[in-house]
Structure formats: structure tokens, C-alpha cells
Design a protein around this nucleic acid. Structure first.
Length: 470
DNA sequence: ATGTAC
């Protein structure tokens, strides 16, 4: 196997079935296990691939590694539910506040915020919202534009997002899995489990980015709310259903891959079209879910700090999807599975509000560590403007529970000190598999991305409160 | 990831 280097932190590996680009610093690159490269090689067996890459947070996933960007031409390419991932539309959202760090340093105030947020945003399995005036079928068809006006505080909530409506052919809704509607309405505006979270953080603006930060309405010491959630059972049901559909149709075509969990079909096939169209319904659910979580968080902040507190959206964007994008003079299907789009200043794909500056790329850390607000660079073109989606898991949930003690977890949350990061759980045991020790060192990941000239850090977000589901 | 489960 031959490995070429293209400048800092950019490797190109010549695998048996095609080339894999890897963006990582030396330390991170050397830490990858062979399994992730074998997995890439299986993915490269899919014909006519235009680009396949790993960001530094890459780790083994089902069929395809988390941290993959994979591109095909819309004309003769492939679509893969395995390279979208099971949590379709999973993504990040940040809201700013006028508050300063010192306003919530008091633990009593922070505990009041946790209690208030939990009143509006269900965080436990099987706890639901009850927005009687929301029609869930309008939401999955029209995204944010399918929500009643009363849940849209102002126009800005519709413009500072990757897309307010993901357009698709609604006729395909006839092919929805039968059980998908069952819990959908009650799950809109709920957090979900696993790595999903709501964090209250304060900002440290990067020295060289004061001007851009000010343009985005950010200031040093500012309190912001970061939300990580997805399309809940709606996307999971679609993912499951189409895994079955694709496996059957691949069998009937006689298509073989060493990994039975790696499923794909031509974009132009009936199965490919059905999946692509319905995937967009999950993206509409996901962005609306994060919107409604944010709406609940805003209500909670208003209960604590007064009814006129404004919480503008900074941005909402996803890291699990396949989008049709125009690159290299043709329409391409860009899969991002645990990879974040980071468009540079002036790029035509930017939403109008961020055309001039490039949009905020929102990168979560692990619990108890920093998160980052970044901005893409022109050089990102070499990776179709994809950067990391977070720290990336370093070990499985099971292995984490065996390795890390609750005490070690508590220490990393600074429990008992003035700077303790407060959590909504009585015991850390419940969420031990989400401790920072389960993840790679996020600073190494960010260093890899910055060093590869894919993006720059605008602000570091330091956690003060972490709200997790189960 | 998912009121998980060929």
C-alpha cells in the first residue's frame, strides 16, 4: 500500500479498490487501527466513487466509519444508507444569549436553568412533548416552514440554518415504513439518548478572529446554548427499513461486498430514489426537532431571566446526511457520515445570511471538554468542504464502562469545585459511557483540521452545564 | 442512533 502526502496533515492512501484521503496530524494518523482502512477499502468497492476521505475523528461504524465523506456524481453515482448513518439528520445548533459567564457562575442559578429546561424539553426515553397544534406530516414535508407561526420567534430562526426546508417529491411518502408515524408527533422537540446533549457554555474568542466573531454577534465570556440531536425514531426507522430494502435488492442484482452491513444502490434506481427522497423527510424532522428543543430552552431561560430575553440562532447544521451539491462543474451527491460542512467566505453554497463570512461550523467536544465554533477555508475544496464532527469515539460504550470509574468521570467534570460542570443526572453512572475518556482528545482533532487548512477556530466553547438524555 | 431485537 502506497501513501502519498499533500502538504500538512493530508495523506492519500492507495488502497486495493481506490484512494482514501485522510486529514490528520501525525499523532492522530498513527493512532488509526487497521480496521478503519479495511472499512474504507470495502466502501471503495462501490463503483465510480469521486472522493472518499476520513476526518481525524474517524472511527469504526456500521458498514462505514463515522468521519467519512464520500462523493459520487449525480449522473452515474450511488447512494448508501450506510454512508449516511442510522441517525439521519443528526446535527448541531447554537443559540447566543446576552448573558455573561458571571451571570450564571452561581450554582443555584445553573440548577434552576437545568430544572426549567427539563420542564420544556423531555430528556428521558418515552417522555413526550404535546404540541397539539403541530401537524407532524407538515413538519416532515416542509421542515421549519411546516411549524405554526407561534413557534417561530422571528424570521432569523428560518434564515440562520443550513436549510429551512429540504425539498423532495412528497409522493414518496407513500413508501414510509408503517410504524414510523406512531411516536413521531410526541418525539418532536425531545432530546434523545446516546451522545445527544444540551450544553450551556461560555465563549473564548480566538485572538485573530475578533472581527468575525463580532460580525456573528459573539463576545468573550458570552453564554451560549449548544444542542446536539437528530431525527429521533423517524430517521432510525427509515434507516432500518432501507437497510432491509437495499440488502434484498443488492442480492437480487448479485452485487457482493465483503461487509454485509454496507448497503448501496444507484442513485437512479427506484430504491435509490425512494431512499433519497424519504431521507429528506428525516432531515426536515431533525432540523425541526432541534428548532423545537431550542424553542423550549428559550422558554426556560425566559422563566429564569425574564420574558424579554432574546436568544438568536447562530446556526443549525447537520453531520449525517447526503446532499446534492454542485462541485467541479457537475452536480454531486456528497455523503457526510459524522462529517461537518464548513464553507469558506464567499462560497455560493452558503446561506444568504453567511454568504460573505462563511457559516459557523459547530463542532462538539466530549462531555467536560471544549466545543468549537469554526469557519471554513478556501483550501477546504480538497475535501469537498468537510471537516470533523466532534472528538470521535476512542472506545466502545462497553469498553468505556469497564475501563473508567465514576470517580474518574466526576473528576473530569470538576465535581465539588467552584468550576463544576453541572449535569442533570443524580448519578454519573447512568451516563458513564459518554464520559470524556470514551472519546479522542478533541484538541488533537481540531489541531489536525486547522493544520490541514480545512478550517479555523473562531471561538472555543467551555461547558458550564450539560444536559443528557438516557 | 432507535419505545432497539433476523
Amino acid at each position: 500500500m502506497k501513501t502519498m502526502t499533500h502538504g500538512n496533515n493530508h495523506y492519500e492512501m492507495n488502497l486495493a479498490h481506490g484512494n482514501l484521503h485522510v486529514f490528520a496530524n501525525t499523532e492522530v494518523f498513527q493512532s488509526f487501527e487497521q480496521k478503519v482502512f479495511d472499512m474504507a477499502d470495502n466502501n471503495l468497492r462501490i463503483p465510480r466513487n469521486k472522493h472518499m476521505s476520513y476526518t481525524p475523528d474517524a472511527h469504526v461504524g456500521i458498514g462505514t466509519c463515522i468521519g467519512t465523506t464520500a462523493v459520487w456524481s449525480m449522473k452515474d453515482g450511488f447512494v448508501s444508507p450506510s454512508i449516511v448513518g442510522v441517525d439521519i439528520g443528526c446535527g448541531m445548533r447554537v443559540h447566543t444569549t446576552p448573558l455573561h459567564k458571571t451571570d450564571i457562575q452561581d450554582k443555584g442559578v445553573r440548577r434552576a436553568l437545568i430544572r426549567a429546561i427539563e420542564q420544556y424539553v423531555p430528556t428521558n426515553e418515552r417522555t413526550n412533548t404535546n404540541y397539539a397544534d403541530i401537524d407532524i406530516m407538515q413538519v416532515v414535508q416542509l421542515g421549519l416552514k411546516g411549524l405554526p407561526d407561534k413557534y417561530v420567534p422571528n424570521e432569523q430562526w428560518l434564515t440562520h440554518v443550513e436549510e429551512s426546508t429540504f425539498k423532495f417529491d412528497h409522493a414518496y411518502l407513500e413508501n414510509l415504513p408503517p410504524k414510523i408515524r406512531k411516536y413521531a408527533h410526541g418525539q418532536l422537540g425531545t432530546l434523545g439518548g446516546g451522545n445527544h446533549f444540551i450544553e450551556i457554555q461560555y465563549l473564548e474568542i480566538a485572538e485573530k478572529q475578533q472581527e468575525l466573531a463580532a460580525k456573528w454577534g459573539l463576545f468573550d465570556g458570552q453564554i451560549v446554548v449548544m444542542i446536539h440531536s437528530g431525527s429521533r425514531a423517524w430517521g432510525a426507522n427509515l434507516g432500518q427499513e432501507f437497510t432491509k430494502v437495499f440488502r434484498e435488492v443488492m442480492q437480487s442484482w448479485g452485487v457482493e461486498n465483503p461487509d454485509r452491513n454496507l448497503l448501496y444502490a444507484p442513485i437512479g434506481s427506484q430504491e435509490g430514489q425512494t431512499y433519497l427522497n424519504l431521507m429528506y423527510s428525516a432531515l426536515n424532522f431533525a432540523v425541526s426537532n432541534r428548532h423545537m428543543i431550542a424553542y423550549g430552552v428559550r422558554e426556560a431561560f425566559r422563566d429564569v431571566f425574564g420574558g424579554d430575553l432574546e436568544m438568536p440562532v447562530l446556526y443549525d447544521l447537520m453531520h449525517n446526511y447526503a446532499l446534492k451539491e454542485f462541485h467541479r462543474n457537475e452536480p454531486m451527491l456528497v455523503h457526510r457520515k459524522g462529517a461537518t460542512r464548513a464553507l469558506p467566505p464567499g462560497h455560493f453554497l452558503n446561506t444568504a445570511a453567511y454568504k460573505e463570512t462563511g457559516h459557523p461550523a459547530l463542532i462538539p467536544g466530549s462531555m467536560g471538554t471544549s466545543s468549537y465554533i469554526m469557519v471554513g477555508r478556501d483550501e477546504g475544496v480538497k475535501n469537498f468542504y468537510s471537516i470533523c464532527h466532534g472528538a470521535g469515539r476512542a472506545r466502545s460504550r462497553k469498553a468505556t464502562k469497564e475501563l473508567v470509574t465514576v470517580d474518574q468521570f466526576a473528576q473530569s467534570m470538576k465535581v465539588g469545585t467552584e468550576d463544576e460542570i453541572l449535569v442533570n443526572h443524580r448519578s454519573l453512572q447512568t451516563i458513564l459511557d459518554e464520559c470524556p475518556q470514551a472519546y479522542k482528545d478533541v484538541d488533537q482533532i481540531i489541531d489536525s483540521v486547522v493544520g490541514a487548512a480545512l478550517a479555523d477556530v473562531v471561538a472555543t466553547c467551555k461547558p458550564m452545564v450539560a444536559i443528557k438524555g438516557v
